[in-house]
């Protein structure tokens, strides 16, 4: 008998290709048998992952827009009109030493006046109304990052002979608030959708397990281990995950290809949709998330329900 048992052991632990094929066939049969729930699971995961991908793309683009806007953000420092040339140069050198200042350029009041006059050469009467050069010296500062703006402005305000400081403060802070709000709303929606996906896949697997109680019993009696039986249901969950994620990827790629084309035609700045974004990474990410949600939902169902059936 011992020899007999060890002889039989030959197929005990090996998960060969034929067994894998059998498991896949069984998962497919099960999907066919519970087609309504399977369809619901598939649709839910596809919609959830498509929305997740959409939020990710918009999030990445908004953040890249913040970067672009921040990069172009200049701080204009207007000096008192009575400041001497030496004083102006001294202020310029002082500003250069402030942390966060990347570069600066000095536009003298004479250059600015000449520039204005040349721009208004066809409205000379306006210029003639002004008795003398009313413009102040201007220092335009480029920052290393928009994050330095508050500190730099604080330092500039301490400098004597600085008359006014101007920068796109309101725009940047409002834009950042909108993006922040968008991120919170987006994250909430995506989390809710992923939870819904998890629950629907889990319910589908639960129904499958209950419907397959007889199969489970037969599998057990012909010597299938609990691990083998679990793998039948895990594979079914994976099937939903991969199929749903695959469709989500197809939808997202098509939608953004069309949107990108339209944006290029209308606004000529559609580069923003792809410049900071790798669609290959996004696709891999979406499929990974689909797999992770479906796998965890399957394991959750198996742990709670199959355990009781296997004990019977």
């Amino acid at each position: 008998m011992v020899a007999m048992l060890s002889e039989i052991n030959r197929w005990g632990a090996i998960m060969n290709f034929r067994i894998l094929k059998f498991l896949m066939e069984e998962a497919f049969i099960s999907v066919k048998q519970n087609s309504l729930m399977a369809f619901l699971s598939f649709i839910t995961i596809t919609v959830s992952l498509s929305i997740l991908a959409m939020f990710l793309i918009i999030f990445m683009n908004l953040n890249s827009m913040i970067k672009t806007v921040s990069y172009d953000l200049n701080v204009s420092v207007y000096l008192e009109r009575n400041a001497t040339q030496e004083r102006v140069l001294s202020i310029r050198d002082q500003i250069k030493t402030i942390k966060g200042v990347k570069s600066l350029s000095l536009i003298s009041r004479e250059d600015a006046w000449n520039d204005l006059k040349s721009k208004l050469q066809y409205q000379k009467e306006i210029i003639e109304l002004v008795p003398s050069n009313p413009l102040p010296d201007l220092i335009v500062i480029k920052l290393e990052s928009v994050n330095y703006i508050q500190e730099v402005v604080k330092e500039l305000k301490l400098i004597k002979d600085v008359q006014d400081i101007r920068y796109g403060k309101t725009f940047v802070s409002r834009f950042k608030s909108v993006v922040k709000l968008f991120n919170y709303v987006g994250a909430t929606i995506v989390i809710l959708l992923l939870v819904a996906t998890f629950l629907i896949i889990s319910s589908t697997i639960n129904i499958t397990i209950l419907a397959k109680e007889k199969e489970v019993k037969i599998m057990k009696l012909v010597g299938a281990t609990n691990g083998f039986i679990r793998s039948v249901f895990v594979l079914e969950g994976v099937f939903f995950g991969v199929l749903g994620a695959g469709f989500a990827v197809i939808i997202i790629n098509i939608v953004f290809f069309l949107v990108n084309n339209k944006m290029q035609q209308v606004f000529h700045f559609a580069y923003v949709f792809t410049k900071h974004l790798s669609f290959v990474s996004l696709n891999i990410f979406i499929i990974t998330i689909g797999l992770a949600v479906s796998l965890s939902a399957s394991f959750f169902s198996i742990k709670s329900l199959l355990k009781n059936i296997l004990k019977k």
């Binding site: 008998m1 011992v2 048992l5 052991n9 005990g12 057990k220 009696l221 012909v222 010597g223 281990t225």
Partner: peptide, 18 residues
């Protein structure tokens, strides 16, 4: 046979049933 099946592991039970 000669084996006490009470102490069988899951794998051994699987082989017994086969």
């Amino acid at each position: 046979g000669m084996t006490n099946i009470n102490d069988f592991s899951e794998r051994q039970v699987s082989n017994l049933r086969k």
